[in-house]
Design a protein around this nucleic acid. Structure first.
Lengths: 344, 344
DNA sequence: ATGAAAGCGCTAACAA
DNA sequence: TTGTTAGCGCTTTCAT
């Protein structure tokens, strides 16, 4: 923040007019409030003095900042996460288009605590975008929604909410993806399908399992509990699970469905380590974010989630409800897409 | 922004004290200004009324926001860029530690134009962090510095500045990296080294070339112009250059040094496409960001740039100059590190 | 068409 | 120890 920047009063004095005249001349283009020539003169003087409005003062007076806050319930590495990176790009794209900027809230401590903290800061923002990650349980999510609503903070949520509350939400239909994945694999002749997932407590996990089972059932197949593996995103646990599956010819699945890009990568690492050939020894079907496994070989066959679009839409929905009091929040489920690869 | 949140005046009235008393009781913990028991009572009432300070008003009065702006001279995809993602993580880490938040400026239009635009917005921020990307020429960088200084905006810059202006800057010594790379390759018996780069106009490119030549010269080797290839980050141009190099046995380099992760990826793609074996047919040495090519096979031998640390340090330097008027800006060059792989 | 003045919610200097 | 008041820089209403 600079020290001695010219302010409206300075220009007003220099031009010999009132502060209000300057404000109007500078901002309300085409208002009959000041004459065209006076406006010209004021603009000219403002330019000469190098005037830049103090957005802070303006925001205080107008009660809006054109700032949107971003909260990611996660520690340090939020920018490393491809899912978040892509959503952020989408958000950014919408904000750019609509003249907003993004304020990133630094997580301040223990999980759960965050919500209250951004609320505290939230006077800086006109609304908040929430990106749920794999570390969010439905309970966390519901609690967050509750607190935000109670505080009357406008917000928009991305990912992992399957409740019915009337909020701005953008996600994908994981049950549909699970079903489509199961049908794809069944049609390609697989009878022993395994599901490699992160955590059974994730909202998405349960949907995926339900979808997979429904899809498999259509082909007279099933997904027994022992072919569902949750690694907790721990490398060692992943290896343990996979070793169980691959230890005996009999139990060995012929196809594996990975719940996200991280698990896909983990499986590729495992396959390399154990000398398992993809897709020679096992078919791999992935649920992942657009474009994030471009450099994997062999190219994974993937149901992609339109992450960029999710971010963009979430931002647009939020801005709509901010700018237009009449607009109601809405929940949107975006379609997925099958990106062919050579692994399934 | 909520509509009818309780403000200091409300609490003051409820407590039957002055606004100032409330402000002090709430903020100046341990000030003898208000008695311990009055403070208790005020805090209690504030809690009951659900008081949250309006940071905007506070910032206007205090003339500081504890917000740092981030500018990346680049269009849409800033979050996809691993270099930026890692620097951002570092920045975020520092901000978290020091109680700041990050404001991401949406680029608003034609390049070059950006500088002025964030200045305009900058009243929201106490300072700005600039991350230079591969789309920045030294001219751009110098112009940016000039404008920021003229506007008396505190800032900190990451990457690609080799001038002597007294600014907060964090980067790496590309000449040293180039030299180390050359020496590494020469020591491993390579006599025909090629440099696969993005653009000859990049500040880093010239440093790298200088370093490479110096290093090679120590072994009686050289880096002729025809073994320096600049793709302009265009896939087709990259292929054209590589085809030239690989078309004849005689001209074919035995080792290639890639200027960044993108070029490394491009080369891997090319090698796959043409059936060239790494490192069988050609050795590959890379200059890249920490951890960003973890999943490439074979694992590239890489001189890593401490991107996370760069972001963190840049933020810390900036905050130091913001909070302490006496602190002078400083330029810091961080050390690189050789991460062994199996490609060189 | 233009100016004066009252906020916006907070901090800090000044009185008491 | 506590209250009063003058800003911070802008927008907007109300007079003129």
């Amino acid at each position: 923040m600079r020290s001695s920047a010219p302010k409206l009063a300075d220009i007003a004095k220099a031009a010999g007019v009132s502060i209000a005249a300057v404000s109007i001349a500078l901002n309300k283009t085409g208002s009959p409030r000041v004459s065209a020539q006076l406006r010209e003169r004021i603009i000219q003087i403002a330019r000469e003095m190098g005037y830049k409005p103090n957005e802070l003062a303006r925001a205080l007076a107008e009660k809006r900042t054109r700032l949107l806050g971003l909260v990611v319930p996660m520690r340090d590495p939020i920018f490393f996460n491809q899912f978040i990176a892509q959503a952020l790009s989408g958000i950014q794209s919408a904000l750019m288009r609509r003249g907003y900027n993004l304020l990133i809230f630094s997580p301040t401590g223990k999980p759960g605590r965050e919500t209250r903290d951004q609320m505290l800061e939230s006077r800086f923002t006109d609304g908040i975008i929430f990106i749920n990650t794999r570390s969010c349980t439905s309970q966390d999510v519901n609690k967050t929604i509750d607190e935000l609503q109670r505080a009357q903070i406008k917000f928009s949520m991305i990912n992992s909410y399957y409740g019915k509350a009337p909020i701005n939400y953008v996600g994908v239909d994981d049950a549909a993806i699970g079903q489509a994945a199961a049908e794809y694999l069944a049609e390609h002749g697989h009878r022993q399908v395994a599901f490699f997932s992160g955590s059974a407590t994730l909202p998405g996990h349960q949907r995926l399992v339900a979808g997979l089972r429904k899809g498999l059932a259509g082909y007279g197949l099933d997904l027994p509990q022992e072919r569902i593996g949750c690694t907790g995103y721990e490398r060692a646990e992943g290896i343990r699970i996979l070793d169980t599956w691959f230890s005996t010819k009999r139990k060995r699945p012929t196809a594996i469905f990975t719940a996200d890009d991280q698990l896909l990568l983990d499986f590729y690492d495992y396959a390399e380590m154990r000398g398992i050939s993809i897709p020679g020894d096992i078919a791999v079907l992935n649920r992942g974010n657009t474009g994030s496994s471009d450099h994997l070989r062999p190219r994974p066959t993937t149901f992609t989630i339109p992450t960029f679009r999710m971010g963009e839409l979430a931002a647009d929905l939020l801005i709509d409800t901010i700018e237009n009091a009449g607009v109601l929040p809405q929940r949107v489920f975006l379609p997925y897409e099958l990106i062919p690869g050579s692994t399934a």
